[in-house]
Design a protein around this nucleic acid. Structure first.
Lengths: 232, 232
DNA sequence: ACCTGAACACCGTTCAAGT
DNA sequence: ACCTGAACACCGTTCAAGT
């Protein structure tokens, strides 16, 4: 027979009381936690469930598949990046800022980045981001047709760069990366000029540009091309 | 007691004679076969082994990991694309040709495409392809520095487009894709102009451009940007 | 209604043991 | 030397059954 609680003593809620029901947002938050864990290698639905203290099947009551979860994660990630008010005088820098932030965020979550391919965004955060980017391009004098065609290409490019950076970050330390790049550079320098004349001759120009500055250069090239308009 | 073979009768080689030893090339060929099978969804080392009629562990005697195998597959795929002799009068079309072929090939093998991120190529076919591409860019009057910085960006862009196309190809039929794009277009057209003024206003410009023409536009933009040189 | 346990049909990779 | 069998430690997803 359990003792009755003393009169007027505050009755603690049973900590084993029914947990609040799961929600898709809670699942997304758990996925972000799991993906941010140091040394992670790919999201697993089981890990998400464990993080929530719940059976795996319970997760499937909130999201229909891992792929859908990763799409939601992608949207949440875009929600983290700051969207500036377009300033025609600084539009180009603003584009670099916003896309640079996007690369940084996506590079930390390659699984989510992968889920972004082949899906045209309709979720709130991504739409807001796209609107901002379009406004910046228009502020830069780029034609509506070039924006309509180029928006997609710009995002694809960002995603590709994010995947590239993510591989570097996951598979090697900054020192290892430096050594690797040095090795590759030496290899290109030593290429036989008979079979690879151009490749060998541009090798000296390859050194000294990190991923960030090559990315900046790539985005700049696309922006210049968009400004030139469709039909070269 | 088995009967002796009749005198002078040709002795058939036992069909169960020792198979020729496995080679990395044989493994790559098997991987390409498996990946080309209709309705495939991701390469598995077990499938490769089965295709070779061999235990799974035997594959690991030829390639150290699935990732290495996919890198070899990538190189083999690049070996399939035709490399034109650079003609300064047609360099731009030649670049479109070669990169268009690359997208087509890679889109059919997304697993291999993924293995291309974060790895600077040193294999024969890819080096040959890179040399050709560099020669074309130089024939187009693009500076060595812009080539050194832009080559990487161009390839990343191609890989991103290939991934995009691969998702469309794998998850829907051409008719389904058409319907999907129509739906998305309608969705963008109906976007509230208060929150998404630019996005809503460019929606009409979004229709009527398939992945191939958007890709061509993107590559064109990059080429124009590279020709403008580094430092916008 | 919401969740658990357990299963189904897979993975990449390794390793002792065979021939 | 080259390969097999079998295991280890995982996956995404489903579904009957519990509360």
């Amino acid at each position: 027979m359990p003792p009755l609680p003393p009169p007027r003593a505050p009755r603690r809620k049973r900590t084993t009381s029914k947990r609040p029901p799961l929600t898709p947002d809670a699942v997304v938050a758990a996925a972000l936690d799991v993906l941010s864990a140091p040394g992670f290698a790919g999201l697993s639905m089981r890990d998400v469930a464990e993080h929530l203290g719940v059976g795996t099947a319970a997760v499937y009551a909130q999201v229909t598949s891992k792929d859908e979860l990763l799409e939601l994660v992608y949207d949440a990630l875009v929600g983290r990046i700051a969207l500036p008010a377009p300033d025609p005088a600084r539009w180009r820098d603003q584009v670099h800022q916003i896309l640079g932030d996007l690369v940084t965020v996506l590079a930390a979550y390659p699984d989510a980045t992968l889920a972004g391919f082949g899906r045209i965004p309709t979720s709130a955060n991504i739409l807001r981001g796209a609107e901002c980017l379009c406004a910046l391009l228009r502020a830069g004098g780029i034609s509506d047709l070039a924006i309509a065609l180029g928006l997609d290409q710009l995002i694809l490019h960002v995603q590709a760069c994010a995947l590239e950076v993510s591989v570097y970050q996951r598979t090697m330390s900054p020192e290892e990366l430096g050594r690797y790049l040095q090795e590759v550079h030496d290899y290109y320098l030593a290429l036989p000029a008979v079979t690879y004349p151009v490749l060998a001759s541009i090798a000296p120009d390859m050194i000294g540009h990190d991923a960030a500055s090559r990315f900046r250069f790539g985005i700049d090239a696309i922006l210049t091309g968009l400004a030139a308009g469709p039909g070269h």
